[in-house]
């Protein structure tokens, strides 16, 4: 039931390699281009952030492994453009038409970029269920994890944190539920909490007994203890 992006706690990846203080923002020119094309296509309004995350996650394990970070973005973007009917497979193969596209009026132009980036896209919503938990309360994450609406669908409860007992640190307000939003099933907003887990609750060999991991988790990911 897992996917490769869900890698928290995994063994075998070797050392983290810090960069130098003067390292460029984009290690190669095409990295910046890949990021910019992705953001510009997002502005066409045919999908949301959760859908695009899921598009990256559901690349085949072979592709997810062999692709570098921005290659994952590019592959997911191409897949989404076809899946949402923005481009055809002929278009991708270089055999499409150059006729004006019905979505061209939504094209993000240079003079609008600063405004779009500054405006952002808040995930908080009015309504939804009332908070069921209070600060300091003990909760357990559900187990098995995974998306309960769509088999193999998008979720933000990492496998390493399923079935674990933690305590509510704070309520972040009511946020769009990615498990629903990623699949066009509506925003289904729910209370979102920061939940603290002792390292010993998550790992068989914690580095230090007093260390903690905090995750942001939606109400439906949690059960009272």
């Amino acid at each position: 039931m897992s996917r490769l992006h869900d890698m928290g706690g995994r063994f075998g990846d070797g050392p983290v390699r810090p960069d130098t203080p003067k390292a460029p923002v984009f290690a190669a020119e095409w990295h910046g281009r890949a990021l910019a094309v992705t953001l510009a296509c997002g502005a066409l309004g045919q999908w949301n952030l959760d859908t695009s995350r899921h598009a990256r996650e559901k690349l085949s394990p072979q592709d997810y492994t062999r692709f570098t970070y921005y290659e994952i973005w590019l592959a997911a973007l191409a897949d989404l453009l076809v899946q949402k009917g923005v481009l055809s497979e002929d278009d991708l193969a270089g055999q499409g038409s150059d006729a004006p596209h019905p979505l061209a009026e939504k094209c993000l132009h240079a003079d609008a970029v600063a405004g779009v980036l500054a405006r952002g896209g808040p995930a908080t919503r009015e309504g939804g269920p009332s908070p069921a938990f209070v600060e300091g309360q003990t909760v357990r994450t559900r187990h098995p994890g995974g998306n309960r609406l769509v088999n193999g669908g998008h979720t933000r409860l990492p496998t390493y944190a399923t079935g674990a007992q933690g305590r509510i640190l704070r309520l972040h307000g009511t946020h769009v539920l990615p498990d629903s939003s990623a699949h066009g099933l509506g925003e289904a907003p729910e209370p979102l909490y920061a939940v603290a887990f002792p390292a010993g609750e998550l790992w068989s060999h914690p580095e230090h007994p007093e260390d903690e991991v905090v995750l942001d988790l939606w109400q439906s990911y949690l059960d009272p203890v």
Partner: peptide, 21 residues
């Protein structure tokens, strides 16, 4: 492909890159 169809504006891409660079 996207530019030919009028779906993206290369100048907007430059602007996004410049912003974060």
């Amino acid at each position: 492909i996207l530019t030919r169809k009028g779906l993206i504006d290369p100048a907007a891409l430059d602007e996004i890159i410049d912003t974060y660079q």
